[in-house]
């Protein structure tokens, strides 16, 4: 969270995280090269580089796509969510090495522009076995490139969170293209079943994870709340709240986060102004509600970011009566001061 843009907002945790990513990537590539040298010594350096970077990029993509649903299913994964962008940019760089060397190796030996060759050397679009799978990988790489260059907050603010988020959801299309790039490419001539097994396991894992996390939320969102004549709805027992944490309630299609802080309950709109992150899945740090995605902070009693920041979210009225928590789903204007409801 900042009032100005910096190239990368590194802190100690991010540095450790980035070193871990770099170390893992180097270790993976070295292991791949050594194993290839032992078991397939005939392979050229270019082939080893193309294969090692492709498998590493796909592995990283699976990790990236797992972080979101894992964090929704278990809060222990939230720290990974904070740093997902760094992993995404790393993954793009590795995928780019794969793409560039593939084009160099397979499309620069003739007298045609390599990019023209990429799209015209194989036009068997009506064949599955001979489908021009390289073009699928190319389009996936373009999506990853656009995501990587817009991963900074500068673009988030200038494109608006809605457009930015829509653009970054194209990663799912990139994943689909990559799966088919593999299935119509290496799988068509690689005799060893390990590639099919790995890509299938990856797909099953990601699909299951996203569907489980998604349906869990739908069930919560579909819970019906009945409003009392004064507009308040009963949402929960007061003793169900954990200090510094929130419960999320979806009332009239709007998600509201109710936080417990210093034995009082505060209700704010669940959507962070930064990227639309789920404020109710974060926690209170230094007296502020902290978004689990990128650490944007809001004061519980008025929904305002602490000075000098200017972000504001709506707040709601909470009432505790006889151990029961009641919530009025009509929002106050963003930044309105509201005292918390004391838990008896």
């Amino acid at each position: 969270m900042s009032v100005s843009y910096a190239a990368v907002g590194w802190n100690r945790q991010k540095k450790i995280y980035d070193w871990l990513i770099a170390g893992f990537c180097v270790l993976y590539l070295l292991t791949f090269v050594v194993l290839t040298a032992i078991f397939n010594p005939d392979y050229t350096f270019e082939t080893v580089l193309i294969r090692s970077t492709s498998t590493l990029a796909i592995l990283l993509l699976h990790i990236i796509l797992s972080i979101g649903p894992l964090a929704r299913l278990n809060k222990k994964f939230l720290p990974l969510l904070y740093n997902r962008r760094h992993l995404g940019v790393t993954m793009f760089c590795i995928a780019a090495v794969h793409g560039i060397f593939s084009i160099l190796q397979f499309h620069t030996l003739g007298n045609v522009n390599p990019f023209v060759s990429l799209f015209t050397s194989n036009t068997n679009f009506n064949s599955v076995a001979s489908f021009p799978f390289q073009s699928l990988g190319f389009f996936a790489l373009i999506i990853l490139f656009l995501m990587a260059i817009t991963s900074h907050d500068f673009w988030l603010h200038n494109l608006s969170p809605k457009i930015w988020k829509t653009l970054h959801m194209f990663v799912y299309l990139a994943y689909l293209l990559i799966v088919m790039h593999v299935m119509l490419g290496v799988i068509q001539y690689e005799t060893h079943p390990v590639f099919v097994i790995l890509i299938s396991l990856g797909a099953v894992w990601l699909i299951a994870l996203h569907l489980i996390a998604g349906t869990k939320e739908v069930r919560k969102d579909n819970h019906k709340f009945i409003a009392a004549p004064d507009g308040f709805v009963y949402v929960s027992e007061a003793n169900k709240f954990e200090e510094g944490r929130a419960k999320i309630f979806c009332i009239d299609k709007e998600r509201i986060a109710v936080y417990k802080h210093e034995n009082k309950l505060y209700a704010i709109h669940n959507v962070c102004k930064h990227q639309g992150g789920p404020l109710g899945e974060g926690k209170i740090l230094d007296g502020c509600i902290t978004c689990p995605w990128h650490g944007y902070q809001y004061l519980p009693h008025n929904g305002q970011s602490p000075p000098p920041f200017t972000e504001k979210v709506s707040v709601y009225e909470v009432r505790v009566s006889e151990g029961k928590v009641w919530l009025n789903p009509m929002p106050f204007p963003e930044g309105t001061e509201r005292p918390g409801a004391m838990i008896n």
Partner: peptide, 23 residues
Amino acid sequence: HLQIWALWAVLIPVGMIVALIAV
């Protein structure tokens, strides 16, 4: 998100099976 993955849950297995049959 859920709608996309529900669609992928159909498209990806179908695509993979078609590709495997074509090997």
